[in-house]
């Protein structure tokens, strides 16, 4: 591009618009994709576990296949989010890098605690309590992580998503195990998919 090339006002407006769109595509993490990845994991994963426990009398827990499917799907979602985030964050330094590390490690530590706690207490708590820790726990944790992300990044949609997930996870305390799974699938996964749509529209509006 030529040095100090003269531009008309229309050309300048086009430069601003194009540069803004390209910079957002390249430098901003695609939150709609992140919401969609986790929304699908929850909708399909919790949905599969719910289908496997539906009609169980007495409740014995989700099938091994459905639990394995959740871990495989979650693995794909984690990989997808890492790829999306590292691509957008390449070359960026400063405050948001530290914030992302805090958010990521908070979620990872919380999830690790849940993974250790659930099997450790499985023999001493009721099936309903175990279902609450194992299934609603990750939803509350994700909600709190979104609230933390919102607080650090001043992100109102993330605050709304986080508050909703905390409400969904907490409301599971009054539900039976099968209903907990259905609630997490529909009200948790469904909400994340809705957030993907809302974020897409907000981004289109900002452009």
């Amino acid at each position: 591009m030529l040095e100090d090339q003269d531009m008309s006002v229309q050309e300048a407006a086009a430069v601003v618009r194009d540069a803004r769109v390209r910079a957002r595509e390249e430098l901003v993490i695609s939150t709609p994709l992140v919401y969609m990845a986790w929304g699908l994991v929850w909708l399909i994963g919790y949905g599969a576990m719910w289908l496997s426990v539906r009609g169980q009398h007495p409740y014995t827990g989700p099938s091994g296949v459905s639990i394995a499917a959740v871990f495989v799907l979650a693995g794909f979602a984690i990989a997808a989010v890492l790829v999306i985030a590292s691509k957008a964050a390449a070359g960026i330094g400063g405050q948001s890098v530290r914030q992302r590390r805090i958010i990521g490690s908070t979620w990872a530590i919380g999830y690790l605690i849940l993974l250790i706690t659930a099997p450790a207490v499985s023999s001493s708590v009721s099936a309903r309590t175990l279902a609450l820790i194992s299934f609603a726990g990750p939803v509350v944790l994700a909600g709190l992580t979104y609230i933390l992300a919102a607080a650090l990044g001043r992100d109102r949609p993330a605050l709304a998503a986080g508050a909703w997930l905390v409400i969904v996870g907490t409301s599971c305390a009054w539900l039976a195990p099968a209903a907990i799974l259905a609630t997490c699938a529909l009200a948790g996964g469904g909400a994340l998919l809705l957030m993907a749509v809302i974020e897409t529209r907000l981004r289109a509006h900002d452009s």
């Binding site: 040095e3 090339q5 910079a23 390449a90 960026i92 400063g94 405050q95 990044g153």
Partner: peptide, 24 residues
Amino acid sequence: APARLRVVVTLATLRDGDNLSFTR
């Protein structure tokens, strides 16, 4: 100027307190 306008708009996409490497 086209190039400087693109530089400024691109850097404005970053959050306050962030920076971008010269190569990126």
